[in-house]
């Protein structure tokens, strides 16, 4: 009928999986096409060997990390992120391909996964109950999430709290936790178990190193958890630990400002958030010491069931 159907061989060549790798991040299948060998090695270090590229799973996100313009290659090589036909970011230095891919996937998820109310929060689980740590950037959320993931909590996610607005459960998305600047030595000192990847200096968020998600979290990435506690953390250097109980309405307001797609979901988002805050016990927490905060969170009263 048209040019495409007349050239099946050409289609097959363009579609050949060749340099594509598939991964599973919680509910999302992801295909990454990239000629960058270092990037594929880092992916394998972080998430294990890629899934076999059979047709059993339809990738939700099909992304590419490709070489930047040819003329820059000899001296300042670049990497470019593409999500289907979109190019959401300006190119990065090629050595920063991994953080570029991670941020690119965040962009894909934030702009598309509206079957969830997406909280900007770290989420961990213990004894079947999920702890939600919603926070603004710079509040120490990733550091705290990393520390808890290294202290016996199951990591569900660092960036996205995926609340299924139909069932009210939180779904895991266990990916690398990007630690920034001073968090990197803090987490190294916190636990000898911490497996950190290479440090990427001078990214748009400063120096970044990724904490590899624990094996157990990856293995259990299809097990959702029931929301139990909501704690709004804020790191203030030198401050003693202060845990303040929050009213449901306060927690609701703060969460509505923190979610990625609360406004977009309209009434659906409102209902989901109301259900969430009603079933959880809510606190705000100021902390200056990571160890004290971790042990305080371990002693949180058991949520009502």
């Amino acid at each position: 009928m048209n040019a495409a159907s007349r050239h099946p061989a050409r289609i097959a060549a363009r579609q050949a999986p060749g340099n594509g790798v598939r991964y599973r991040h919680g509910p999302f299948g992801i295909q990454v096409d990239t000629p960058l060998q270092e990037l594929r090695q880092l992916l394998a270090w972080c998430y294990g060997p890629p899934a076999r590229g059979d047709d059993s799973d339809i990738p939700r996100f099909h992304v590419r990390v490709i070489h930047g313009p040819l003329y820059r290659r000899p001296l300042f090589p670049q990497a470019l992120f593409k999500a289907d036909a979109d190019t959401p970011f300006a190119p990065f230095p090629r050595s920063h391909a991994f953080p570029l891919l991670e941020w690119g996937l965040n962009w894909c998820i934030a702009t598309r996964a509206h079957q969830y109310l997406m909280l900007h929060a770290g989420v961990l689980e213990r004894d079947g109950h999920a702890l939600i740590l919603p926070a603004v950037p710079g509040s120490g959320k990733s550091t705290l999430t990393a520390a808890l993931a290294l202290s016996g909590w199951r990591l569900l996610s660092d960036e996205f709290g995926l609340l299924d607005w139909r069932g009210g459960l939180l779904w895991p998305l266990p990916r690398a936790i990007p630690l920034k600047n001073r968090s990197i030595p803090v987490i190294r000192a916190f636990s000898p178990k911490a497996e950190l990847g290479p440090t990427f200096p001078k990214t748009r968020k400063g120096d970044v190193a990724h904490l590899r998600p624990p094996e157990d979290s990856r293995r259990r990435q299809h097990e959702p958890a029931r929301p139990g506690w909501i704690v709004f953390p804020r790191f203030v250097a030198g401050n003693p630990l202060v845990l303040t109980s929050l009213r449901h309405s306060t927690a609701f307001t703060r969460l509505s400002q923190n979610a990625f797609n609360y406004r977009l979901l309209g009434a659906t988002g409102f209902d989901a958030l109301q259900g969430l805050t009603r079933t959880c016990r809510c606190w705000s927490a100021q902390f200056g010491d990571l160890d004290a905060m971790v042990s305080a969170l371990e002693r949180l009263p058991h949520p009502q069931t």
Partner: peptide, 13 residues
């Protein structure tokens, strides 16, 4: 196929 319908219908928002 599994996962496709929730993804497509979520784009209605």
């Amino acid at each position: 196929p599994p996962g496709v319908w929730p993804d497509l219908s979520a784009q209605r928002f």
